[in-house]
Amino acid sequence: MTAAAPARTLMGMFTNSLDAAVAAADAGRPEPVVRVQGLVKRYGEHEAVRGIDLEVHRGEIFAFLGPNGAGKTTTVEILEGFRQASDGSVWVLGQDPWQAPGSWRARLGIVLQESGAEPGLTTRECVALYAGYYPSPRNIDETLALVGLSEQADERAAKLSGGQRRRLDVALALIGDPELIFLDEPTTGFDPSARRAAWEVVDGLRRLGKTIFLTTHYMDEAERLADRIAVIAAGRIVAEGTPQTLGGRQLEATRITFMLGAAADLQTLPPALAQRLARDDDGLLRLPSTSVTADLHALSGWALERGLELESLEVSRPTLEDVYLQLTSGE
C-alpha cells in the first residue's frame, strides 16, 4: 500500500502533464463543454453503453437520439453525475461528474425525464425555492416569463397541465443561470401545440447562448432544434452529424414521384429516365435522382410535348425519420 502510493502520485503527475501537453496543442480550439471517450456502463453482465465518444461544444444544441433502451438515459445520467461510468473518461464543464463538487452543479441545469411537482407550492414558490439553492440565480419573474408561465405564477404547481408542468421543469433547470442544460425527452407525451410551445422555449434558450444536451426519440424535434445529432442504438453511436448530413442523408438520392393517366406511353420517355423509373402497385411512379434539376426538366419537357399532366408530382429528400429507422433497425 505505502509503496504503491508514491507510484500513483507519479503516475498522476505524468498524466497531468500529458493532459497539459494535449491542452496546449488544442489551445486554438475552445474546450468542449462535454467530452466523452470510450464510455462503458455495465449492469452486472449486461453492457448498456458499449464504448461511446461524444463532444458537445459551447453554444451548441446537441440532440442525442435513440430508441428506448438504447442507452440514452444511462449516458445522460452519467453526464449529470447520477450514475458512475464503468469505464472510459467523462468530462462535463471540465469535471468528472461523479466526483464533481456542488459548485459544478451550479453551472448545470437538468430537466429530468420524470419529476413530480413540489406538492403544495405555487409555480412561483417552486421557482423561488430552487432560486435559493444557487449562488447567483436569474430573476424569478423573468424566468417565469421566459417559459411562458407568468399567468400561472400563483397557481398550485400540481394543478398545471402536462405541458405547463414541463415548462416549470425548464424554469427550475434555468433559474440557476446554467451554462449547460440537459433536457431528457422534454416533450414526450405532449400534444402538438404543447410541443410547439416547448420548442419555442428551447429557441429562447438558444438565444440566451446556452449549451443544450437534448435527448429525444422524435426525429422532427431533433431536426427542428438541433445543430448536431448523434444516434445511439444498442449502446453504440451509429451515426453523428448535422440534421442535413446525418447518416449520409445529403448523399442519398432525392425521390421524384408522380402519376400518369392511362394514355401515357412510357416507352417514349428518354432512356436515361426510363431505366431508373419504377412503378408501385398503386400506380405511383418513382424516379430516384441525383441531378434533380436536369431530371425534372427532361420529365416535364416530355410531358408538355405530349400534353400530359404529371399528377401528384412530388420531389422529396429522405426524411430524417427514414435515415433514423434505417440506422437503428440494423440491431
Binding site: G120, L121, A128, L129, G132, S136, I140
Partner: peptide, 30 residues
C-alpha cells in the same frame, strides 16, 4: 418584475437551511 434579493445560497449555509425549512413547512402545512 419584482427584484429578488441575494439568494439564500449566497447568504450562507444557515440562510439555506432556513430557506429550505420555510418551504418544507409550507408544504406540510398545506
Amino acid at each position: 418584475v419584482s427584484q429578488d434579493g441575494p439568494s439564500a445560497a449566497a447568504r450562507g449555509p444557515l440562510a439555506m437551511v432556513l430557506h429550505e425549512a420555510a418551504y418544507d413547512l409550507r408544504i406540510s402545512l398545506r
